[in-house]
């Protein structure tokens, strides 16, 4: 039998970068061997363990970007260089693209984190990237300066309050770019209703759209059954988080509800 183990390894935080309001990136000197879109289970000893997508991995160092929104993520965001946390993984599916493709990346809020890793990798493969970022307000935008400095990356911004970039919905920017340019693939990560809209635009324009789904998880390796989606019972941790819009269109709960820790349906607010 294959030698399989799912135990956390403990790593020291090497660097902490404050990215935006309540959002920090933690760097670790460790070869994670992750691909853009994959996630790890981050263990804060004695507190909790939560899934976090990888926001950087160059083979020697990797990073996790954490948005403080719950008890565990708030405590994680209080950690400093030299503090220790545990990691299991990487888990799940990745964004797929080919050499030299034209990609549109649509990130909503902290959903920009895995797309930043994707952009870093895709430019190495001579891809051209239109990186569209949506946030409620300027203070919640991530990685903007870094992305603007990257070759072959064009950054577009939309904020709900107009404090930076276009005031309004990023979808309008997406539709415009799809009309003007030949785009091979769209990749998105952010609030589910935003991603659903992006998927619909991609489907309509006949552009393959890859969507990163967030569901409540316990194990990360396909056993606990918490992250399943109706009506096919697909496990988000192993068949996702990155899924094609064509698959998600068959999952009636996409854009409607998710399950909580007790398995109860929680509807998204429209």
């Amino acid at each position: 039998m294959e030698n399989k183990t799912e135990l956390p390894i403990v790593l020291e935080i090497k660097k902490v970068v404050e990215e935006a309001e309540n959002t920090k990136t933690f760097y670790f000197d460790h070869t994670l061997n992750s691909k853009p879109g994959q996630f790890v289970m981050l263990w804060l000893p004695g507190v909790d363990e939560i899934p976090i997508s990888v926001s950087f991995d160059d083979g020697e160092q990797f990073a996790l970007t954490v948005f403080a929104r719950g008890e565990a993520s708030n405590q994680i965001c209080g950690l400093k260089e030299g503090d220790k946390i545990g990691i299991r993984g990487p888990y799940g599916t990745m964004f797929n693209y080919a050499e030299g493709e034209n990609l549109v990346l649509v990130g909503g809020g902290y959903g920009a984190a895995p797309l930043r890793f994707l952009a870093n990798e895709a430019v190495k493969k001579n891809c051209k990237i239109d990186f569209m970022m949506a946030a409620k307000t300027k203070n919640k935008l991530l990685f903007v300066d870094e992305l603007r400095e990257m070759k072959n990356v064009t950054v577009y911004i939309a904020t709900s309050d107009g404090s930076e970039g276009f005031k309004g919905h990023i979808n309008e920017t997406l539709e415009k770019v799809l009309k003007e340019k030949k785009i091979n693939k769209i990749m998105t990560c952010g609030p589910e209703l935003l991603m659903k809209a992006v998927g619909e635009i991609g489907d309509k324009a006949n552009v393959q759209t890859q969507i990163s789904i967030e569901r409540y998880m316990k194990c990360g390796f396909g056993v606990c059954g918490q992250c399943v989606m109706d009506p096919l019972g697909i496990r988000t941790c192993v068949s996702g988080p990155v899924m094609n819009s064509k698959v998600l269109n068959m999952l009636e709960e996409f854009g409607k509800y998710r399950r909580d820790a007790e398995g109860r349906k929680q509807y998204f607010n429209k």
Partner: peptide, 18 residues
């Protein structure tokens, strides 16, 4: 009635046991 489980981590595994 509703019953809450434990916090994570809840499942760990090696090649021999879970």
């Amino acid at each position: 009635n509703e019953h809450k489980g434990h916090k994570n981590p809840t499942i760990i595994t090696t090649e021999h046991w879970m």
